[in-house]
């Protein structure tokens, strides 16, 4: 390629790129849709739900407005879930006094309810157990695999979505420390 053709191509590409970057803010303004759109993805509003505890008490996500909530979807046959849950208990004990709430939602539509309840009680977990009996919450939260952890901030916004073992005790402590600020 001769120097002349090279120069012509380069100059046109650079000029077009520059104009594209300059018109981008006008042509494609940022739409701040996050706060009013519900979706299970970082930055969006966490979809609200109302589920029942094994005792039949109704609990909604919106009950905890102003407090961070971990929505944790699990099943009693899921070994990763059962490896994760004791760690969640220690974090719950540590941060519950500051207002942190943990909703352990059993995906009851694909689990044995007796197994799930007896497992949860035998382990002495003190956080809230909820039942997704008809799978509607799992659909809303686009459940592809358990465990699914959705950390919801005080404003109801999704802070993090983690499928699988990534929601560990250490990671959750780091995230909550972020929210509450360094404590002594």
């Amino acid at each position: 390629m001769s120097k002349k053709i090279f120069t012509i191509i380069v100059v046109s590409v650079v000029l077009l790129s520059l104009s594209w970057i300059i018109v981008t803010p006008t042509l494609f303004p940022i739409v701040q849709a996050k706060t009013d759109t519900a979706a299970v993805h970082k930055g969006f509003q966490a979809p609200d739900f109302t589920l029942q505890t094994p005792d039949g008490q109704s609990i909604s996500l919106s009950d905890y407005e102003g407090r961070p909530v971990l929505v944790f979807l699990w099943a009693s046959w899921c070994s990763i879930c059962k490896r994760t849950m004791p760690g969640l208990q220690s974090i719950y004990e540590e941060f519950a006094p500051e207002g942190f709430e943990l909703l352990a939602i059993n995906t009851s539509f694909q689990d044995s309810l007796t197994n799930a309840i007896s497992y949860f009680e035998s382990q002495g977990y003190t956080y809230t157990m909820l039942l997704d009996q008809d799978g509607s919450l799992s659909r809303d939260y686009q459940l592809h695999a358990v465990p699914l952890s959705v950390l919801v901030g005080p404003e109801g916004e999704v802070i993090d979505v983690i499928i699988g073992s990534g929601m560990s005790e250490a990671y959750l402590r780091a995230k909550l420390t972020d929210i509450y600020g360094e404590r002594d």
Binding site: D160, S165, G166, S168, E169, A170, R173, A174, T177, D178
Partner: peptide
Amino acid sequence: FILQNPSALAGNLLAMFSLTPSM
């Protein structure tokens, strides 16, 4: 990650070596 979030190790120093990709 640990330097940014030193609190992650507060419960258990071994978490340093955990295989979780999130940290």
